[in-house]
């Protein structure tokens, strides 16, 4: 098993490197180059040449990639083209904000999703199950900004319970900033919960078709007890893997939600940089989102193996 995990971790590292290549190549696809693009068509050849030299654009692509990666490994994310300040300084507080938003969302949505999934599976085919299924379908189908604007309309404008923007200042207290974060957390949780709930329900129901469950029913165990005592322990493996995988949905959802609520996180920083075509900033943000995404998928894979011994056996024969 240790071997399997080692292989999986090594594969994760390879994926990570390939993502750095992908991000770097994607930002260098331009037929012209960044210098012409940023300084505009009217720039003189001399300023262009100086700017190119400053960015190191005259070096071959492979060399530039190597240098970029080397700097990354030393914690140097480069300089923003628009503000001329080191990206690392700006990005840290924003990363912390985003992690806080994502963490709180996970804290709310994971227990909720598993609870609702079990409830839905226990009442399979009833009106409750139908209502939950329709709710989940709606939450998945709605674009993030629709859910967000509906929440703002009801809880901020009509009821006045929460602020409509989640601008967080460093001097705000814990409870004050939490209060400002309620709506973005709820909006994000809607999306993630729906996915996880659906998959929890499916995992439990697929276990429910096993012979030992039939046996439990035949010996007269009530339905609720069959699910909690017999089905749930065996469905735990897929559910844990599904939870980690679905938290990856947060990576995508968080970008739009941060923009809607003007939340000072990584997603908003990236979108701002995209609009200004600040390539180094976009590279850095994209890389962080990519790492988060790969990391969650890796955790999901490893957890799935740890909790389900059957997945380990194919590797033993090799």
């Amino acid at each position: 098993m240790g071997r399997y995990i080692a292989i999986r971790l090594a594969l994760g590292l390879v994926t990570l490197i390939s993502v750095t290549v992908l991000v770097f190549v994607a930002t260098n696809l331009l037929p012209g180059d960044a210098a012409t693009e940023i300084l505009g068509r009217g720039a003189t050849p001399e300023t262009l040449a100086r700017f190119r030299e400053q960015l190191g654009l005259d070096d071959p692509l492979v060399l530039r990639y190597g240098k970029w990666l080397w700097d990354l490994l030393h914690g140097d994310l480069g300089q923003s083209l628009t503000t001329q300040t080191p990206i690392a300084e700006t990005i840290w507080p924003r990363l912390v904000s985003t992690l806080r938003l994502a963490g709180l969302t996970a804290l709310v949505s994971v227990p909720l999703a598993i609870g609702l999934g079990i409830l839905s599976a226990a009442h399979e085919g009833t009106a409750l199950d139908r209502v939950l299924a329709i709710g989940a379908l709606a939450a998945i189908s709605f674009p993030e900004f629709f859910t967000a604007y509906l929440l703002i309309l009801v809880f901020s404008v009509k009821l006045g319970w929460f602020p409509n923007l989640s601008t967080i200042f460093p001097e705000m207290g814990f409870w004050e900033s939490l209060h400002a974060m309620v709506l973005p957390i709820v909006a994000l949780a809607c999306l993630v919960t729906a996915h996880m709930m659906r998959m929890t329900r499916t995992s439990i129901l697929s276990v429910m078709s096993q012979p030992y469950i039939e046996m439990a029913f035949l010996k007269g165990v009530p339905r609720g007890a069959v699910i909690t005592r017999h089905a749930l322990p065996n469905a735990a493996a897929p559910i844990i893997a599904v939870v980690a995988m679905n938290l990856a949905y947060l990576v995508v959802g968080i970008v739009v939600i941060e923009v809607v609520f003007v939340y000072p996180g990584l997603g908003q920083y990236m979108v701002d940089a995209v609009a200004k075509r600040d390539i180094p900033v976009v590279q850095a943000c994209g890389l962080i989102f990519g790492i988060a995404f790969i990391g969650l998928n890796l955790v999901s894979d490893i957890l799935a193996v740890l909790v389900n011994p059957r997945l380990r056996s194919p590797n033993r024969g090799r």
């Binding site: 994607a26 600040d278 390539i279 989102f289």
Partner: peptide
């Protein structure tokens, strides 16, 4: 390799360039 980055994030990167 492409599957390891979310579509929206990759699209943002490519559209910047």
């Amino acid at each position: 390799m492409f599957l390891s980055v979310p579509v929206l994030i990759m699209a943002l990167i490519v559209l910047t360039a």
